[in-house]
């Protein structure tokens, strides 16, 4: 029933202002196309990519450090060249983007669920619960996100020395996710404080509806708009955080490289002239993040009633 309701609400908003604003924003459309290309090609990387860079049987060290195909010594089989182990750069980018996107989306979902839940609770219940959650948020905000992520990663390494490789993905999602919840919690708390005093929430209380049900069915749908905007922009931030962590060597292991790992590996070859090993993953990262940010900006403007004409 409620899923149906959500679907109807989505379709309705899609039919109306959002879709209109989308159709009239060339940046948003271009960004969406790029983003969908990124998501599509990385999701289907095993089928799209010309090689499987992680299949050791396909690797041939004699192909190592080949330049892009349009340069002398380049081969059409490796359009963007190869790295020191003979892996095709294009393929590693596609596979790497897959991990980057997965980490970005999963960690944002994690911090969204955590932040929205805590923000809703703080705003609706108020009093000491509110004060406690918000003080924790304040403390958390006084640490840089990278520091928190490094801390969690370090603790995970110390606790699970052996399993760490296999769990690296989840540790990364957890550490990036935990450092991001505060923004959601603050936004949702603010909107909840506004919504909870609206008369439709008071009316629901009059009917004897349980506070949790009021939060879920009345307040939550009406505070989600800004959350979606923050979430979109946050995916970009999370991807960069992941890249930074991987660049620092505490992210995903080099056997399953993300874009950040690729840039770090390539960095070693920058001064020996093999610039393509690091440049192309870098470009891929920038394009992807830019597209997501443009989408986020558009969404923010489109959902902001004060900017709507």
């Amino acid at each position: 029933m409620s899923a149906n309701r959500v679907a109807v609400a989505l379709r309705q908003s899609w039919d109306s202002d959002l879709a209109y604003s989308f159709r009239h924003s060339p940046y948003a459309m271009a960004a969406a196309v790029v983003f969908l290309l990124c998501v599509g090609s990385s999701t289907f990387a095993p089928w799209v990519a010309p090689h499987n860079p992680f299949d050791l049987g396909q690797l041939d060290l004699s192909n190592s450090l080949k330049p892009p195909m349009w340069l002398q010594g380049g081969e059409p089989a490796f359009p963007l060249g190869t790295d020191d182990q003979g892996r095709d750069i294009l393929s590693t980018i596609l596979f790497g983007a897959r991990i980057s996107l997965a980490v970005g989306i999963c960690s944002v979902l994690f911090s969204m669920v955590l932040g929205v839940g805590l923000g809703l609770l703080a705003g609706y219940v108020g009093g000491k619960t509110d004060a406690f959650i918000m003080r924790v948020a304040d403390v958390q905000l006084s640490f840089p996100a990278i520091l928190i992520a490094l801390l969690i990663d370090g603790v995970a390494r110390a606790l699970l020395p052996r399993a760490h490789e296999s769990l690296a993905f989840y540790v990364l999602v957890l550490s990036i996710g935990v450092s991001g919840w505060v923004q959601y919690a603050r936004t949702v708390r603010g909107s909840t404080l506004v919504e909870k005093n609206k008369e439709y929430v008071q009316a629901a209380r009059l009917f004897g509806i349980h506070p949790l049900a009021i939060m879920a069915r009345h307040v939550l749908p009406n505070v989600l708009g800004p959350v979606l905007v923050i979430g979109t922009i946050h995916i970009a931030t999370a991807i960069i955080t992941e890249a930074t962590l991987s660049f620092l060597g505490v992210g995903v292991p080099p056997t399953q490289p993300s874009l950040g790992t690729l840039i770090r590996i390539g960095n070693d070859f920058l001064f020996s002239g093999e610039w393509w090993v690091t440049l192309f993953p870098g470009i891929a990262l920038v394009v992807m993040v830019l597209a997501i940010n443009l989408l986020g900006d558009w969404l923010r403007d489109a959902l902001n009633p004060r900017l709507r004409t």
Partner: peptide, 18 residues
């Protein structure tokens, strides 16, 4: 609960828009 009900002032805020 059932017998006591209320009608609010602001017809724009008293109905959940969604």
């Amino acid at each position: 609960r059932r017998k006591l009900q209320m009608i609010f002032q602001d017809p724009y805020a008293s109905l959940n828009p969604r």
